[in-house]
Amino acid sequence: MAPALTYDPNPSAPRLRLPAGACDAHVHVFGPAARFPFAQDRGFTPADAPKEALFALHRQLGIDRCVIVQSLCHGLDNRVVEDAIAAGGGNYLGVALLPLDVSDEELARLAGAGFRGVRFNFTQAPNPAFDVDRVVAFARRLEPLRMHLQVHFERGLIHELASPLSRSAVPVVVDHMARVDAAQGLDHPDFVALLALMKNPLFRVKLSGIDRITRDAGRDGYRAGIAVAQRLLREYPERCFWGTDWPHPLHDHVPDDGVLVDALERIAPDAALREQLLVHNPQRFYRFAAS
C-alpha cells in the first residue's frame, strides 16, 4: 500500500493576500522516489511531495519565495533539495543535512548552489555523531561561507541546548518555536526559556508549526499556537520567519495550508509587521536576489 499524503492537494483559498515577495521559510520536498530514492535508514516513508506540487501550492497561496529544508527521509543526500533550488529561478533556497566531516569543498559547493544553512536534529536519545558541542565546533566552518546553523529539537531540550548553542560562531535558527506545548500557556518554563534564548541576537526562530504545538484545528483554530507565535513576533520582530512546514510529515492531522496563511492575520495583525515577517526578514537573512 502506498503511503498516504500528509498534505491536502486542494487546500482552501486563503482570504489574506500576502505582500509581494512573501517567503515560506520552512518546507520539505519528497521524491519522486523513482528519481530521488529515500534513505535506507529513514525513520519514515512519505508519499511523494515533489517540487512541482510545492510550486503549485505557492502559486495558489501567493507565496513568491521559499526555503526548502532537507528531510531525514532523504538522509544526507541533498540532491532532491538542490534540484528544487535549481528549478526555482532564484526564489527557492535551501538548508542541508550533512555529516560533521563533510569536506570544505562540498560545503562550498552547496553554498554556491543556494544552500544557506545546515540543519541538525536533537532528540532525547543522545546521538554521539551529532552531540551539541561537536555541532557548535562545526559551525566555525560555516562562517566564511555565510551559512547558519538550523536546529530542530524535541520538546524540553531547550534547557540543555541553550547554553552550548550560544557559543556558535554563526547565527542559529530554532525550528518550530522549539516545539513548546502551547496548551501549557506562555508562562510554561519551556516557552520562558525560548524567550530568554531569543534575547541573544545570535538566534532566530521560525514561527512554523502552530498546527503542531496545539490541537484545535480549523479555520479559526490553533489559538494557543497563534498566541505563542504572536508573543515571539511582538518581542523579536526582526528575528522571526514564517513557514508552512509543507508537506506536514509525521503529523497527527492534515493541515489546510490556506488556513495556515490566514492565521498570519492573527499572528501579525498589522500589515507592516506581516511584511517584515514575510518579506524583509527572510530577504535580509537568506539573501534572496533582489526582485
Rank of each mutant, 00 (worst) to 15 (best):
R223H: 10
A96S: 13
L260R: 06
Y222T: 04
E106F: 05
L186R: 14
A290D: 15
V118P: 06
R119G: 08
L76W: 12
K199M: 08
G112E: 11
V102H: 00
W246T: 08
L197N: 05
V69M: 11
D24K: 07
D131Y: 10
V95K: 03
A87K: 14
L54F: 13
F122D: 00
A263D: 11
P19S: 08
S166T: 07
D77I: 05
D220V: 02
P171R: 11
P19Q: 07
V95H: 03
A47D: 09
F153P: 03
V69C: 13
V81N: 10
S103N: 07
L142A: 00
V174W: 10
A20G: 08
A13N: 13
R109A: 15
V174K: 01
D252T: 14
R155G: 04
R155W: 08
V135C: 03
R134M: 06
A289H: 11
M198Q: 05
H248T: 09
I63K: 13
R287N: 07
L194H: 01
Q70P: 07
P99Q: 02
V67Y: 10
P189T: 09
V192R: 15
N78E: 04
F44K: 03
V192N: 03
G114R: 03
R212T: 05
A33L: 08
L202R: 12
W242A: 04
